[in-house]
């Protein structure tokens, strides 16, 4: 592997579970790799790993993050190279239930070693605000806060923003983690009818710049069913387009933000139902 790279460490976090952290990690990781970047995605959800499943690599896991931390395996042995994109790699979490297996020094060492070999290190945080979540964000340069337009998710995102501003290595050095908001499962037609918080509502409450808006879509479930990031499984689908745009914004490109608009037939409009 070529050295002398210096990866950007990104944490995908949310506080609340089930909002789309793992889906977003897989989709953004694959999108960045597709754009030519060298990417590693790391699953920090010790005991409940799922990123391997979303990436379709669940049958190829031999070693994991904890093995590397404990010196049981070398980092190159534990990395799983994606079968579709050769510059996309996965470092899976272990299935052991011992959360204390994850140590701050161990994570620091792994992240430092990966930094020199990749352009992007994307850390998939577990839900909650416990050890796994704080270690996932510990060395981050950039944070992607995944939020659903729903009260409990927004509240938990606010908690996580507080942690990013106090418990990360950057915060302790008096610097700031670069924060971005990714709104997922957005249903524009509900927001238009005043049934769901709008993008503006969420932005005003959380005051974090917007990275992207991922519309609610059956494509996301379909991609997880087959074990392929949605950005690879159906790159032209609305959620995949939104993830690609978010990935390019992460890279620093300026791309106008599209609020997904509704494309519902007259029947659905009349009866207020959406198939997805």
């Amino acid at each position: 592997m070529k050295d002398k790279k210096s990866a950007r460490v990104v944490v995908v976090t949310s506080g609340k579970g089930g909002v789309g952290k793992t889906t977003s990690t897989a989709a953004l990781g694959a999108a960045l790799a597709h754009l030519g970047e060298k990417v590693v995605v790391i699953d920090f959800d010790v005991g409940l790993r799922n990123l391997d499943l979303m990436m379709g690599a669940e049958r190829r896991v031999v070693f994991d993050l904890i093995n590397v931390i404990h010196g049981v395996a070398k980092l190159p042995q534990a990395l799983i190279r994606d079968k579709r994109l050769e510059n996309l790699n996965l470092l899976p979490a272990s299935q052991t239930r011992d959360k204390d297996a994850l140590t701050e020094e161990g994570v620091a060492k792994v992240v430092a070693e990966l930094r020199s070999k990749f352009d992007w290190i994307i850390c998939d945080s577990p839900a909650g605000i416990e050890r796994g979540a704080t270690l996932a964000m510990r060395y981050a340069d950039t944070a992607i806060i995944v939020t659903n337009p729903e009260v409990s998710s927004v509240r938990d995102s606010d908690r996580i923003i507080g942690l990013l501003d106090s418990k990360t290595e950057k915060a302790e050095r008096g610097e700031f983690v670069d924060k971005h908001l990714l709104v997922t499962r957005y249903q524009p037609w509900r927001a238009a009818r005043g049934e769901m918080l709008t993008i503006d509502d969420v932005l005003e409450i959380l005051s974090v710049p917007l990275l992207g808006i991922i519309p609610e879509s059956e494509e996301v479930l379909r991609a997880s069913n087959v074990g392929s990031p949605v950005t690879l499984n159906n790159p032209v689908s609305p959620p995949a387009r939104a993830y690609f745009e978010a990935a390019r914004r992460l890279k620093g490109e300026t791309i106008p933000m599209h609020v997904p608009s509704e494309s519902r037939g007259i029947f659905n409009k009349l009866f207020g139902r959406k198939a997805a």
Binding site: V151, G194, E195, L197, I205
Partner: peptide
């Protein structure tokens, strides 16, 4: 009437 989203917004603003 308007939906419930404005209520959600108000509750969040006070709580946060």
């Amino acid at each position: 009437s308007r939906g419930s989203a404005p209520i959600a917004r108000e509750r969040l603003q006070i709580l946060l």
